[in-house]
């Protein structure tokens, strides 16, 4: 964390510029922001590792939820938001149910993903879901095979959702446009092509 005070001792100050003793690439506001968005008390983490021990993603990848908790507490914003492992949490909430400090590590991850997305760091599949919902109201839209199956079941080909009542899609577009998310999704996705 960036220090506000000075020791007034040049040799000690020089020492403190050495990364071995001191790292200034941390941001104390990061911890606070993560806690606000995630609505959880990340700074209470005492690194016991129960979360990683509960995590289905840990045994098959380098993703470690405890590491992300450390990054949250220390304000290691860059490290947290640029690590692709951030997107390997299945949001199963096992860690949250077991954390002895009553923290929700899952929601720490969700908050970090929100913060990463603000910098346009977000995998393509997430943005494609946004596009699908914007155009159809559904993340998984209807298709012809399914329409035929529905008719065979004696149901309408279109379910009574935005599929059957497309006039409701305008409201969905208005909400997404309020946040400018569709334009951002389009922009990021076109850059990647």
């Amino acid at each position: 964390m960036a220090r506000e005070k000075d020791y007034g001792n040049p040799s000690l100050e020089a020492k403190l510029k050495d990364r071995y003793y001191y790292s200034d690439d941390t941001n104390r506001d990061f911890t606070k922001e993560v806690e606000k968005i995630g609505r959880t008390i990340a700074h209470m983490c005492y690194q016991c590792g129960t979360c990683t021990g509960s995590c289905p993603s840990a045994p098959r990848s380098s993703y470690r939820i405890r590491l992300f908790m450390r990054r949250a507490v220390l304000g290691l914003e860059e490290e947290a938001l640029t690590d692709p492992d951030l997107w390997l949490c299945t949001t199963c909430y096992s860690c949250t149910d077991r954390c002895p400090r009553d923290i929700a590590p899952t929601d720490v991850i969700m908050a970090m993903r929100n913060l990463a997305a603000r910098r346009d760091i977000v995998p393509r599949n997430f943005l494609k879901t946004v596009q699908a919902i914007y155009t159809t109201g559904h993340g998984v839209p209807n298709n012809d095979v399914n329409r035929a199956a529905r008719v065979k079941l004696g149901m309408d080909a279109e379910p009574p959702t935005t599929c059957g009542f497309p006039e409701y899609i305008e409201g969905i577009k208005a909400i997404i446009d309020h946040y400018g998310l569709k334009d951002r999704a389009d922009k990021i996705l076109s850059e990647g092509e």
Binding site: W87, V122, G137, H138, G139, T162, L181
Partner: peptide, 19 residues
């Protein structure tokens, strides 16, 4: 009538919880 995707908590919530 007129309901949409919930929207998908992982895919959508990860981008912006407010939306």
């Amino acid at each position: 009538c007129g309901a949409s995707c919930c929207p998908a908590p992982g895919a959508f919530g990860s981008i912006d919880l407010n939306i």
